[in-house]
């Protein structure tokens, strides 16, 4: 199948999804992020890699947190950053997604960081740019519907590599609302590409996609089975609207069955790490004692996230 994010030389021109990314490309991003992490610790936190380039943060869906991390990453690369909150402007006036893109291309955007509520929207933009023969304009998917959140997947891999060094013998449990989670899909693709020994999808049947096992995961409906002897626990955020009784009876019952309590975490390996893409619902999917405990690496994830996003933008701008 034609891979829309790689150019003829197999180099990354867009980051749309982790699916289809060769292991070397992922490792190259993680290695590059490692060097950028040092930049974040310096007094002068800038490198001139994207000087004179315009990065447009085009968010069709609100997300202050993700937008901010992209903004910081782009600014540390010396890019000019323009934030567009499209939910409140053009689409409200009936402009289509591709109309918006055409306008921004006319403003000489060099890179789009796109978040959209519809799965596949960044692919549509990338395809449109290809038809316009604008291979100098790059697209970074900052989250599309339930499909993918590749920079989150990459920062999760960075975090795991940082603490566990190697993927070969790792057992990773992804717990919660996988059905609606773009983070889970990106993590699964990344982990299977990097060769994790076992990836478990843990949750009730109402929150797991049909045929999720075809993505190479082991399905566990039982939390203790899912966590037993695992090395990494990735907890997913449970959106409030999922708790209205259609998919789950209540937050209380969800926490009882799938919440990460200290007792549950004790089933995992003693050196297991606990991750969460944020923002957390304390007491819904994760107990505060775990979230603030010694095994949680949730705040380092945020720090690594900036380095990973710098790496992605730096690599795209160079290709």
């Amino acid at each position: 199948m034609h891979n829309p994010q790689l150019n003829a030389n197999g180099e990354l021109t867009h980051l749309l999804s982790i699916e289809g990314l060769p292991r070397e490309v992922i490792n190259h991003i993680l290695d590059t992020a490692s060097s950028f992490l040092k930049v974040s610790h310096r007094d002068v936190k800038k490198v001139p890699l994207l000087r004179g380039k315009s990065v447009f943060n085009v968010f069709f869906e609100n997300s202050t947190r993700t937008r901010t991390t992209f903004e910081i990453a782009a600014k540390r690369l010396s890019a000019d950053v323009i934030n567009l909150d499209v939910t409140r402007s053009s689409t409200a006036k009936g402009e289509t997604l591709l109309d918006t893109v055409d306008n921004l291309v006319a403003m000489h955007a060099d890179m789009f960081v796109v978040r959209h509520a519809a799965s596949g929207a960044p692919h549509l933009i990338a395809d449109h740019l290809r038809r316009l023969r604008r291979n100098d304009v790059h697209v970074v998917n900052a989250g599309d519907g339930r499909h993918a959140h590749p920079t989150q997947g990459l920062l999760d891999m960075y975090t795991i590599r940082h603490y566990k060094k190697d993927f070969a013998n790792l057992v990773v449990a992804i717990v919660g609302d996988i059905l609606h989670s773009r983070v889970a899909r990106s993590d699964i693709h990344a982990l299977t590409t990097l060769g994790a020994a076992e990836v478990r999808a843990v949750g009730p049947q109402t929150l797991l996609p049909t045929a999720i096992e075809t993505m190479g995961v082991r399905v566990c409906h039982d939390m203790s089975e899912g966590l037993r002897d695992c090395d990494v626990v990735i907890m997913l955020r449970l959106q409030n609207e999922r708790m209205n009784g259609a998919l789950l009876p209540s937050a209380r019952e969800y926490f009882r069955c799938y919440g990460l309590s200290p007792a549950m975490l004790a089933l995992a390996r003693p050196d297991a790490i606990v991750m969460h893409p944020g923002p957390m619902n304390r007491g819904v999917e994760i107990d505060s004692d775990v979230a603030d405990g010694p095994q949680a690496v949730i705040l380092p994830q945020v720090t690594f996230g900036i380095a990973v996003r710098m790496a992605v933008m730096g690599i795209l701008a160079g290709n």
Binding site: G120, R182, P209, T210, A211, T214, M215
Partner: peptide, 8 residues
């Protein structure tokens, strides 16, 4: 649908 995050 599972892979692309589309509603089935």
């Amino acid at each position: 649908a599972a892979r692309l995050g589309l509603t089935g």
